[in-house]
Design a protein around this nucleic acid. Sequence first.
DNA 1: CATCATACGGAGTCGGCACTCCGGAACGCA
DNA 2: TGCGTTCCGGAGTGCCGACTCCGTATGATG
Lengths: 183, 183
Amino acid sequence: MRSDAQANREKVLAAAEEVFGETGSTGSTEEIARRAGVGIGTVFRHFPTKQLLVEAAVVGHLTRLTDTVRERIGGGEPGTAFRATFREMVSDAPAKLALVALLEEPADPTDAPDDAEAAASALRDAVGALLSQGQDAGEVRADATVDDVYVLIGALVSAQADRTLVDRAVDIVLDGLSPRRSE
Amino acid sequence: MRSDAQANREKVLAAAEEVFGETGSTGSTEEIARRAGVGIGTVFRHFPTKQLLVEAAVVGHLTRLTDTVRERIGGGEPGTAFRATFREMVSDAPAKLALVALLEEPADPTDAPDDAEAAASALRDAVGALLSQGQDAGEVRADATVDDVYVLIGALVSAQADRTLVDRAVDIVLDGLSPRRSE
DNA sequence: CATCATACGGAGTCGGCACTCCGGAACGCA
DNA sequence: TGCGTTCCGGAGTGCCGACTCCGTATGATG
């Protein structure tokens, strides 16, 4: 790959993460091209489909997020670790929003083995590990599943409201995720 | 107003509630016209703007919802009443989705006094009454506000997941809304 | 039943966006 | 430095959805 091509690809990806972070996969390709300082043609040469561009942007976010989650596994304070991760994932709305948009569309069997899906399930596994760790320590309600956590995060992510309000909502939800009285 | 015009207006409104209920204000005007069995022109004569059509559809939903909420105020079982309402509002996703879309767009000062806003705040008041009632009875955590409740409902509404999963999430959130241990 | 204001239908316009195409740079190797 | 290959830019295409326009139909009224 020629060096200018490589550079452009990166500029486009950065612009895409930026734009999708603001508008959640609704952002137009033209806008991305403009911010990247390249022509539309260039965007489409590197990412032949908008879908692919979204995926590429999302994979970046997810991988980074997965890394930080993994670092917490096995550390002390399982409850705190779980809650911190939960909060972070809600704030990482950009990535999640895009991911949500991505997963919404019906899985096409003709797809090549999907990077985005791989990244998503890696994250899911890491979150799952953190969750069971919290449960083993008796700091997270025992009957909660990764699915539950995901639904709740997904919900909070797509709530459009002041940061402050969402933070309050997160606290309430985390209370709901704490061990039940009877336990 | 001519009788056929009246009839058509109602058919369009019904179709609009149906379509927006499925797609959340993304549904196309053509689709609505088709389901109503009228031409597009007719839709636009009654509702000159898509925005107005959305509002009209939403006002219907909201008013009905407000009525059922009001009926619960002052009845027995404040905690149950509150929780039932919470669950219903989450399931009434269609109305809320549309409302969300509606409220998202910047309030235009040139708007006439807005039906939709009036309907929305009536609902909010009713929910507020139910909430304080539950709190007075010690069945809902004391520090929760109507805003909190709205954010949580809004979040759960826009979670896209199986009915079953969302129901579990609602249970968890309602646990978070129950009185704190220390209370 | 005649008349006309009121409605209707749907082809057509306009704008926006994903995606294509190709003439003209820019790279990198000898 | 010369040259073939790889890239780039951005005007152009096709599609889709909101909205308009006007010839035609139909309810109301005397």
